[in-house]
Structure formats: C-alpha cells, structure tokens
Simulated scan of single mutants.
Amino acid sequence: MKIGWIILVVFFCCCASPADPPAVSFYYWKTTVQLGDREESTLQLNSSSRLYVRYFDVGLQNGQPFPISAVLFKTIPKQHIIPVVYIKNEVVLSKSIDIPALAQRIVAYLEQINAHYGIETEELQLDCDWSLGSKANFFELLHALRQQRPWRLSCTIRLHQVKYFEKTGIPDVDYGVLMYYNMGTISANQTNSIYDRQTAATYIKRLGKYPLKLKVALPIFSWGIHLRQGKVINLLNKLQEADVYNHSDLKQSENGKFKILREGVYFGQLFAADDEIKLENVSAETLLEMATDLGQHLREKPDEIIFYDLDSTNVNHYEKEIFQKTARLFR
C-alpha cells in the first residue's frame, strides 16, 4: 500500500510540471481574418492553441450603442477562438444605456457571426478602459453577460486599474489580461508611448496585491508618429525601421527622428518638407526585460502570455524564438 502511494505521488509530481512556461497566444486585430504563411507558421512554432480575435467594437450612434466593424472570416483558424469585443468608454459612460438589453444584443450579434461561419466559442473577452465614472455600468454589463450564457468571461486590465484597484474596483470575471503597453502620451518627446520602463515601474509594484488572476499581454506592434513643428499630426501604423532607414527622402536627425527632405506622399500620408517621423517599437531585448520585471512582481505566474498582435509585419521584426524565450522568463 505504501509503495502504491509513493508511485502515485511521483506520478502526479511529474505531471504537474510547475516549471512549465506559460502558453503563448496572440491577439488578431484585423477586420478580416485571413492568416498568411508567416502568421500560420508563428502559431505552429509556438504551439498556440488559442487565438483572441476582435469580433467587433461597440460605440454610440445617436446616443445608442451600435456594433462597429464586424469581423469577416476569409479563413477559419485551427486554434480555439476567443471573441474579443471592444467597448468604447463612451458607451458605459452613458446615463441612458439599458445594460441588460446591451448584453443581450452583444450576445445575439456574436452568435450571429459564429453561426454564419460555423464557429463555436465558449468564452468571451471584453476590452474596455473603464474609469471611475463608467465602472458601475461596465461591471453591470459583465454581470448581465454572465446571465446570458454560462461561459468563461474575461476582460482587459490597464495598469492604472491595477495601481488604484481599491477605487477602480475588481471586475467579476474568471481572469483579467494585463495590457502591459500604451503607457504614455503619444508626443514629440523622447519617451516611447508604447512602453517606458520608468513609467511601468510606478505601477507594477502593486501587482503583488492585485487579487484577480491575470494573464499578460505584451506588445509586438510598432508605429511612426507624424510630427509637424513639434505637434502630432497622425499615426503611421505598422511602420518599421526598415521602412525609413536608407529612404532617399528621409534623413535621420541627431534626436533619432527622421526628417522629411521634400514634400510628398510617404507611407500613405502627405508630408510637408521638414516634417518628422518618430518611430516607436519594442525590441526583442525589451520584451525580455518586460517579462523579467513582471515576473518579479506578479502575485502568481500567469498561465498564458498573449502577444499583440499577430501580423506578418509585426512578427517578421523578431527572431522566431522570441515568444517562447519571453514566456520562459515567467517560470
């Protein structure tokens, strides 16, 4: 009998594998889902079994909530799909919103999309940067969605919602996804608005006290900021260093920005002479740094790291092993 128990203990200890790194997953944030070869190979290389797909946004039209930019599936991913619905803060700030009716419409529209494409989902994630003024409505919406279906429910968590959680509250969800990016104001200064370690340090010390189970979302996107006389004009999404270096009409300044030498259309936008482009991205070294810092402050190791977002332009910027390397730092 004692030998039998010893065998069982050894068996369960071997299966538990506490040192296993978190799973690697991705957000897919295009309106049309059509995975290319690079995106498919990235999912396969990282053994990704889940894909977080933006289904639609909810905004206000004539004071009423309305779905915006519904997803179109050209191909159906092999991974388990987790629908993500982005709720604009204006919706949950509204004093006249019928929350139960909104929850019913969200579910009905989601199920309509699933039925059209033959997709089955058992989980829903809401993305909303709720504030003190919209907290009550957002939390009521989460409760109403739970009443609609017995599904797994999650939501995104911003850093300020962690730091001030006594005031911003804890959402009633199965888990949250900590969005560890978009930490600053998009501006002409030298700070990287996607990720700044000094800014992050003012928030992450509170992670050890945050009571909700968390997964972590890390950025792999980039953009260029179009500047004119020190003022932000527009964003150039997915702009990479390779796009601007050695460009005949751009010259890199001492401050690291790229000056437009002559008026023209570049990267789909009209630039005047002397306009500037400020590049913002997250290097592979920075991803590893982020993971190390988070691993030291999270209350418990996350079981999943979700990279934002799966796109050939983004993943081509990194070595193929970077996502696994990053996840392993959370052991």
Rank of each mutant, 00 (worst) to 15 (best):
S187A: 15
R146K: 15
H116D: 07
F307E: 08
F66W: 10
F138Q: 04
Y117K: 04
L60M: 05
S193F: 11
K259F: 00
Q79N: 13
Q34G: 09
D293E: 15
W223D: 13
S94M: 00
I277Q: 10
A217T: 07
P21F: 05
N234K: 14
F26H: 07
K215S: 06
I157Y: 02
K325W: 01
I87V: 10
K135C: 03
A284D: 02
Y245M: 14
V107E: 10
H160R: 11
F221D: 06
E300L: 01
L93Q: 12
A201R: 15
Q198I: 09
P18S: 04
L102H: 03
I204A: 01
Q269Y: 14
N192S: 13
Y55V: 04
A19W: 12
V9M: 11
E289I: 00
L153E: 05
S94K: 01
I113K: 09
A19G: 08
L141Q: 06
L207N: 10
V107C: 04
K74I: 05
R158M: 00
L329W: 03
T202Y: 07
N114V: 04
L207C: 06
L207M: 12
W29N: 11
Q190D: 15
L145K: 02
I68T: 11
L141G: 01
S94R: 00
K301V: 06
I6S: 11
V24N: 06
Y52F: 13
I97S: 03
Q104C: 10
D311I: 01
L93N: 13
Q104Y: 05
V162R: 08
Q190C: 02
A284Y: 00
E300Y: 07
V9D: 09
L227E: 11
L45A: 13
D275N: 10
V9W: 01
V177E: 03
N255P: 03
T168K: 01
I82Y: 00
Q104E: 15
L110P: 00
T32W: 00
I322V: 11
S253Q: 14
Q190T: 10
Q148S: 07
Q148I: 02
K259N: 02
I113G: 03
L93E: 13
L236S: 12
A284W: 00
D309E: 12
R149I: 06
F258C: 04
Y210H: 07
S248I: 15
N316T: 10
Q161P: 05
S96I: 10
Y195T: 08
A19C: 10
N255M: 09
A217Q: 05
K209A: 15
E241L: 15
T202F: 08
H143G: 01
T292K: 11
V24R: 06
K320Q: 11
L110M: 10
Q296P: 00
F139L: 09
